[in-house]
């Protein structure tokens, strides 16, 4: 475990380097960016003064280490656009993104199990085919397009849900349904395939031999065996989910982290982009780590195997 933590830490340092380097290589004068689009009218002396005051004239390693140090003290820097600490900006937007992501994960797990298990119980039956076809269809277009059509239908034509914003939570329903639903369908497929794999294994046959009915055996023995796989799968899809959120938040006018990064990009708020890359890296690493722990806990075989 200590080994795993150390490797996580090294990865994090690498991620921070990547994010700092990328932004450092950005075209354009950072001082000018600091002052915004109206900087053209500022005299060069004033520009130099601001440049050295902000430490923008220091050499690269010095700036990188300085940046790392301030991050360790919980200071992600200041947004060029609003002059507010980036941490404050993130804190204002994170809950929305977290809610949608979490909601989507929960919904995906539920739909995955609710749809996946019947597929196994009636392999080749109606549900099996229906899930297969819907999953294929919903996976054939990017989620944001599904979201857009849902928005048009449910919010504009039927006037059931809000068109934009959080609106006390109801604005999150469609994004969660879109992302979670699509993910749930593919989870159902994975679950089905994995379960079908398990039902041919010896211990499962033994369970049947003990007199359990097929559904009972699937629920008691099969599911337990594939649970860890499900967790791994969801963790792997999580990174993609964060990517999908950028477009979904934009479509639904939700002020989350995803739409914020687009805002930061269009206003060239480089410190925000920098902090965002690092932040996402941390979140994904944390997610992978916790999935790992969960898998070990669910399936002691994995822990043993990885030790060996």
């Amino acid at each position: 475990m200590a080994h795993r933590l150390i490797s996580c830490f090294l990865t994090l340092v690498l991620v921070s380097f990547v994010s700092f380097l990328a932004v450092d290589l950005a075209p354009g004068d950072p001082t000018r960016l600091l002052l915004g689009g109206t900087a053209q009218e500022i005299a060069p002396e004033a520009l130099d003064r601001i440049r050295s005051a902000q430490g923008l004239d220091a050499p690269f390693p010095e700036r990188y280490l300085g940046w790392l140090k301030s991050i360790l003290f919980g200071d992600l820097g200041v947004s060029l656009k609003t002059n507010r600490p980036i941490l404050t900006e993130f804190a204002a937007r994170l809950p929305i993104t977290a809610l949608i992501a979490f909601g989507a994960l929960v919904l995906a797990s539920i739909t995955g199990f609710v749809l996946g298990v019947p597929c196994v119980l009636h392999e080749g039956g109606f549900v099996d085919h229906a899930v297969r076809i819907t999953a294929s269809l919903f996976h054939s277009v990017p989620a944001f397009l599904v979201g857009l059509f849902a928005l048009y239908l449910f919010s504009f034509k039927l006037e059931l849900l809000p068109l934009y914003g959080v609106s006390g939570g109801s604005g999150l329903i469609l994004p969660v349904l879109t992302l979670g639903g699509i993910m749930g369908l593919s989870l159902a497929r994975v679950l089905r395939n994995a379960l079908l794999e398990t039902v041919h294994e010896e211990h499962f046959l033994a369970a049947l031999g003990k007199g359990l009915s097929y559904p009972q055996a699937v629920l008691r023995h099969g599911l337990r065996n594939v649970l860890s796989l499900m967790v791994t799968y969801l963790a792997m899809r999580f990174a993609g989910l964060l990517g999908g959120l950028v477009l979904i938040e934009t479509m639904f006018s939700l002020p989350g982290m995803g739409s914020y990064i687009l805002e930061a990009i269009s206003s060239r708020d480089l410190p925000v982009i920098q902090a965002y890359i690092l932040f996402i890296g941390t979140v994904v690493l944390a997610c992978n780590l916790s999935a790992d722990l969960l898998v070990r806990w669910l399936d002691p075989r994995v822990a043993k195997e990885r030790l060996g």
Binding site: F102, G103, G168, G169
Partner: peptide, 12 residues
């Protein structure tokens, strides 16, 4: 979560 979401719909 679902209960919370639907409760929130009330304050549209």
């Amino acid at each position: 979560l679902i209960t919370a979401l639907f409760a929130a719909t009330a304050c549209s």
